[in-house]
Nucleic acid binder design. Structure first.
Lengths: 227, 227
DNA sequence: TGCAAGCATTTTGTATACAGTATAAAAAAT
DNA sequence: ATTTTTTATACTGTATACAAAATGCTTGCA
């Protein structure tokens, strides 16, 4: 993750220069496959089969699996290869606790350190997200939702913070997506987001932290039924 | 035939009796080499040379390097292999900010969730640490210092938190060790630790958080001259 | 002397081959 | 029929081989 060239989520991957290493290509691909559920939790990964499917030999595939193992998306069982990691309810709750703490930290820093332009960008994302919400476009809404959270963390201008946040976020991505169903929950989340953005624009660190706190605590409530 | 790897002597973890996989062995070994400075920041890693040095072929070595790249200890440059990652002063400061936040979070949780026995264990570590301090045994002192911080995080019983904490801690390990020189700084750190343990024993979450806050902020002051 | 082009060497990236191990199925024994 | 042992097979772990890319050096020329 750290030294991986991560491309912005939601961009066309065709547009990126084809110069990315095969290793990186496979890592990105597998990560998406896990997040999107093509590879299900608990599923064993057969290197030959998957390699053939992706059109690569076992060597770079294995290297990619080691990389993802360090990210925590797969588990390496000695002499039995890689298994897609399955997270317990407590795991997810714990991750959300940490994510919450990290976003609160980022928010506080952002209130004093971020530029007006950067905050303005978040507002734009939020407005676009609301449009997708009103249009009932759940996938697009969700992607922007993620981008907003990532964006707030990015405002803190703290690379390690952004990195570990991204690490945990990728793990709960799928579960969160599934959990965001239900109209009234959805509406609640949007309202919370509005308050978050407002606090950010006002650079009111304590209010922002409080809003993020409740938003992410509610996030767990929204999600916990599906884990 | 599986290569006859000469066992790394000295720091064998007795708890893990079963022989680790070669992959895990190499990862551990390389991580230690980086933390201990055998592989210096910015240094390029030549796979053939290092592999021969460790008595393994390139394949598992490369897999280990990918793993460490994901941990952020090495950087993968396309077509030019792995380089030991060099951290800027801002990187280190940022990491300590995140570590501080995570330890504060852990401390708050620990005050309500940890058992008396577990807290007692931390006290024992602290007392032992003080003994090493008084004896001037810097390395031993430092190791226990680390263990205490890790231990406090462990009290929170939150695996993802412990994981990301450990991830960042391993990155600043070497720098911190170097930075802990100087008698008066050392004394200050010990005094802060004493207050931390006291707050923990009293299960006074706010005091504990405040003490951890200042302790780790001071930690940066102690360290920033050497980065 | 300075510079550039081409060749040689080194190093990484990927594929394949081989050995060891676990799993499953079949055969044998009770 | 059930349990145990044997055997076959599939898969992972590691090493080696080969291809592509980068680096460095030599040589030729102005």
């Amino acid at each position: 993750m750290a030294s991986e060239v991560t491309e912005p989520v939601g961009r066309r991957n065709v547009a990126t220069i084809s110069r990315q290493s095969l290793h990186g290509e496979i890592v990105t691909r597998l990560r998406d496959m896990i997040i999107e559920g093509d590879l299900q939790p608990g599923e064993r990964i057969y290197e030959n089969q998957l390699g053939e499917e992706l059109g690569v030999s076992r060597t770079p595939l294995r290297e990619a699996l080691k990389f993802l193992a360090s990210e925590g998306l797969v588990e390496l069982v000695p002499s039995r290869g890689a298994v897609v990691k399955r997270f317990s309810a407590k795991d997810v709750e714990d991750m959300l606790i940490v994510l919450r703490s990290m976003e609160m930290l980022a928010g506080r820093i952002a209130c004093v350190a971020a530029s007006d332009e950067a905050i303005g960008q978040i507002r734009l994302l939020h407005d676009a997200m609301v449009k997708h919400y009103e249009a009932g476009e759940r996938l697009e809404y969700y992607k922007l939702n993620q981008q907003i959270h990532t964006g707030i963390v990015a405002l803190a201008n703290n690379a390690p913070l952004a990195e570990v946040h991204g690490l945990l976020q990728s793990r709960v991505k799928r579960i969160r997506f599934i959990g965001h169903e239900g109209a009234e929950r959805w509406a609640g989340a949007v309202a919370e987001h509005e308050r978050i953005i407002a606090a950010l624009e006002a650079r009111d660190a304590e209010t922002l932290a409080r809003e993020l706190d409740t938003h992410l605590a509610n996030g767990w409530e929204r999600v916990k039924s599906v884990v």
